[in-house]
Amino acid sequence: MSNFFLKRRLLALLVSLILLVIIMGITVNDRPYPSWPERFIRDSFSLVQGVVYKPAYAVAGFFENIKHMYSAFEENKGLKQKMEEYTQMSADLQELKIENEQLRDMLDAKESKLSDYKVRAAEVIARSPERWNHTVIIDRGEKDGIEPNMAVITPKGYIGRVQSVSNYSSQVELVTDIERGNHIGAIIQGKEHIFGVVEGYDPKNNLLIMRKIPMQSEVSPGQLVITSGLGGTVPKGLVMGEIVAVRMDDQFLTKDAFIKPNADLQKIEKVFVVERSFVPPTEIPVPKPTEEGGTGS
């Protein structure tokens, strides 16, 4: 009898282990629209999390304000100086804009559709308490018009993309969780644009890595990196960060640039979800079969 019991228990153990592996295997892929039980649980938790997160953030912000008061005087001096530069810059910008418009009119060139987008405000309500899933949960979902793969930004720059949407909440994958096909087309701003793909993350130094930059291109620390808007749902011109280091890759064929994200990924409170006006087609065009096959000569 006990022998039978032992056998059955082993069987149960094995079956449950296999079941676990199967469930993990099924759910490992990106699922932009999760099933209804998941949606239900996520939405109901998001209600409570929203209630808890906002006051906690307010309290933390209060303490930070006290910390900042000590350095306010010094900061103020620096900012004033910057402000003077800023006036000059905005005047220049206005001039350039007008000039640009005039030149466009003369050339009959249309505005590029790549950088056109609308934003929706959302608030962060939770963060994943984990090491590798750099996931943030926001309080807007499918009912508010959020769709998977939309870019998410803060005023400081690009922070990630919408990974999966429930009815009233959605999960945002931060740029630091970049490894699984979540590559972002980017441009290094310099004398001329250098196109590349941000496709890695260095967790030790918290830097993004842009690989396969042509050898002869001039890349140096301090240059800004923005999104390129080529392909996908990320519009052009969102600031990603600043280059802090450049090095040869292992084969000495191309360069790698290390990018410090501009947005503070540790403290995220309010974000904007970017809806792109123009989404480039993703299907590979298939040549149409000729309709009058055989009738031609």
Binding site: V52, A56, A60, R127
Partner: peptide, 24 residues
Amino acid sequence: FIMEGTVLQIFIAEVIGSAFHFLP
């Protein structure tokens, strides 16, 4: 469970920052 995702995350970001990793 709620705290691990919300209050503690803010607290960790404020106090510890990214000096080392602490998972509640």
